[in-house]
Write a protein that binds this DNA or RNA. Structure first.
Length: 646
DNA sequence: CAGTGAGCGAGCTTCCGCTTGACTT
């Protein structure tokens, strides 16, 4: 045995960075995440015996564990430097068990950025593995296992084989179902908006009142013919915009989704590549903090590259997302001078670079001009905006945009009390828009807001729901809405129609029928599991365990009592509440049989398309050809079924 | 009239959160 020290970290990419500044007697190895877990095939928890968990070494980690064991033998001290959060603490604890490390040999250190100062600071304040933190993670793990492995089998019995329930996925499913219900119950409202352009169309404004009825709008439009349009107010101000915080996992996924149409999964794969190549810091983080060294470097970079006035006067720090564990810093480039990237992640790197750099830059200033033209009991508002100082916008390469209904120069030339000549008046019909379905990245935003999932799981939550066929990407709807429009030109009103595309649902998440069925079933029998409050309460109890003011067994029991008895009761009921046969799909209701009143529908059975009538034992079936699936009408269906019955 | 489907039983599915390569649809 030499006098070497072994440091174990979770991620192998940290090894290279650490060896740059660690004392030479320290060897660094990675454990690649968890090394032990509950068994995959069974519950692995003795509910009757204080919820005792059966930990198993992960089969796929056999090689890693062996390598770590050998490294331990060659070292005197083992430094457990797993991530500074509940999972990291638990991994450290499992490592001491799996590697059979005597307490005297082990120290625990924790750093949240891989920088020399931070790591050396951590090395100088070693501690023991914190049993309270470990217990909190154990409670989390056991509650999740109990929910998933006890409730899922109920779904197999009562709905369909292979389904699943879980603390996170079932609450996430509820979010999708609720959005779907909002859409179903939505009644679009029609209204009319008035706009007017003046001075040969160089200036235009929007009337600040809308009209409910067509006739009202027409009358107001007509009244403009003889109205004297006079400027009553001119308001010129400077408005400021501050840079948003640097990115964390959820916001990275959102931005990549809305700007480049990337799915959270693709985003994470590309980010992984950037991380492994050493271009960015860790990409699974909930923090918007930046390490002090990086911050210093960035501020020097900004003043050196753009000049002192582009630097935020005060060092900016940002509000963290509620419930964030802050085990890592924000996602930022490792070097402030922009690195040339190849391999498809260029845009993602630019996004990360821009958001990080901009976060310490000065705010942008806009010159804003607003003027009012009174009409009846309200007024037209004309406005324009131009960039006075681009500030942080400069980081993105393209300076700020100037926009408005009149150019700044044109508006600046106008005087209060001046009379404007009317060029054209327009009344447009509007529809209040449907609540949009979630995009994958928009859904992640909602998950984070609700405290569901972690940076490492956001992308997989979406794929789990898709794998279970609880939701799918919507097919684009090409529905066009026809809306009326009226123009007032040279004293004449002309009415017309315009077409507007309905909001496009392409790629957005829609709940399937099986998703609806699973949700309804769970909500009826296991309401607590579909409720996001379940997760919220679990989090506060975990905090109490971590602080040493609650025991994990008591907390696990409390949560298990919320669904355990129902599981036991439903396991005893033999009757299947509702079976969804695997083979019966794409059901289309045609109508009721005129004599018997039974429902007639077409569907795909295992052996092909059929038309069927009634339910259960007395169902009448008849094969049809594939084309009739969608086209068969009630009369034809009745004829086929009548023939079948005789 | 033929052939489907009900009913039975065996064997399988499932959670959340850490990490990456080793894989073939």
């Amino acid at each position: 045995m030499g006098s070497k020290r072994l440091m174990i970290v979770e991620s192998s990419t940290k090894i290279k960075t650490l060896t740059r500044f660690l004392p030479p007697d320290i060897v660094v190895k990675a454990c690649f995440g968890h090394v032990s877990d509950l068994p995959k095939r069974e519950l692995g928890i003795d509910i009757g015996k204080q919820f005792r968990p059966h930990w198993r070494e992960l089969q796929e980690k056999k090689g890693t564990i062996e390598a770590l064991k050998r490294a331990c033998e060659a070292s005197t001290t083992v430094i457990l430097a797993t991530d500074p959060d509940l999972e990291g603490e638990a991994i450290a604890w499992h490592l001491t068990r799996v590697l059979k490390l005597a307490k005297e040999r082990v120290v625990r250190v924790a750093f949240c950025s891989v920088t020399e100062a931070e790591v050396l600071r951590a090395l100088h304040s070693p501690r023991k593995v914190d049993r309270n933190l470990v217990d909190a993670q154990i409670a989390r793990r056991i509650v999740d296992r109990l929910v998933g492995y006890r409730v899922s089998p109920i779904l197999w019995r009562h709905l369909k084989s292979g389904l699943s329930a879980g603390r996170v996925q079932s609450a996430a499913l509820r979010l999708l179902v609720e959005r779907e219900r909002e859409i179903e119950g939505f009644q679009p409202e029609r209204s009319w908006l008035l706009t007017a352009s003046f001075e040969d169309g160089k200036v235009s404004g929007m009337y600040q009142k809308s009209f409910a009825a067509r006739d009202e709008a027409r009358e107001a439009l007509e009244g403009m013919k003889d109205h004297e349009c006079i400027i009553s107010h001119i308001d010129r101000t400077t408005e400021h915009t501050s840079a948003p915080p640097p990115l964390r996992t959820s916001t990275l996924q959102q931005e990549a989704g809305s700007r480049f149409g990337m799915s959270p999964k693709v985003t994470m794969t590309l980010a992984q590549g950037l991380y492994e190549a050493g271009h960015i810091t860790y990409h699974r983080t909930d923090s918007v903090d930046m390490s002090p060294e990086a911050m210093q470097g960035l501020r020097t970079y900004i003043s050196g590259t753009y000049g002192e006035r582009y630097l935020a006067a005060q060092q900016r720090s940002f509000r963290q997302a509620p419930g964030a564990q802050l085990a890592h810093e924000c996602i930022r480039p490792t070097s402030w001078t922009r690195t040339a990237i190849t391999g498809g992640a260029e845009r993602l790197y630019d996004l990360i670079w821009t958001r990080a750099v901009a976060s310490q830059m000065a705010r942008a200033a806009y010159d804003v001009c607003k003027l009012q033209v009174p009409y009846r009991d309200s007024h037209y508002l004309v406005s324009a905006r131009s960039v006075e100082f681009d500030g942080f916008l400069r980081a993105s390469g393209h300076g700020g945009d100037s926009h408005g209904s009149g150019t700044m120069a044109m508006l600046a030339s106008l005087k209060c009390g001046q009379r404007l000549t009317l060029h054209e008046g327009t009344a447009r019909e509007q529809l209040t828009s449907l609540p949009p379905r979630y995009s994958e990245s928009g859904f992640v935003k909602e998950l984070e807001r609700c405290g569901l999932g972690r940076p490492s799981t956001y992308a997989t939550i979406v794929t789990t729901l898709q794998d279970r066929r609880y939701c799918e990407s919507a097919t684009p709807s090409k529905v066009k809405q026809r809306l009326e429009v009226m123009h007032l030109r040279e004293g004449e009103i002309a009415a017309g129609k315009r077409e507007q595309e309905a909001p496009n649902d392409r790629g957005r998440l829609t709940v399937t029928e099986i998703g609806q069925d699973v949700y309804s079933y769970l909500d009826r029998h296991f309401g607590c599991i579909t409720d996001i409050a379940f997760t919220r309460e679990l989090e506060t109890e975990l905090d109490r365990i971590a602080a040493g003011s609650a025991k994990w067994v008591d907390i696990v029991r409390k949560f298990h009592d919320e669904f355990g008895p129902t599981v036991d009761a439903l396991m005893k009921t033999k009757a299947l509440e509702k079976r969804i046969p695997r083979a019966i799909r794409e059901v289309r209701r045609i109508g009721r049989h005129p004599d018997t009143g039974q429902m007639i529908e077409t569907c795909k059975a295992r052996y092909g398309p059929v038309v069927k009538m009634g339910d259960g034992y007395k169902t009448v079936f008849a094969k049809i050809d594939a084309a009739s699936m969608d086209s068969l009408d009630l009369n034809a269906a009745v004829t086929i079924l009548n023939r079948r019955m005789h």
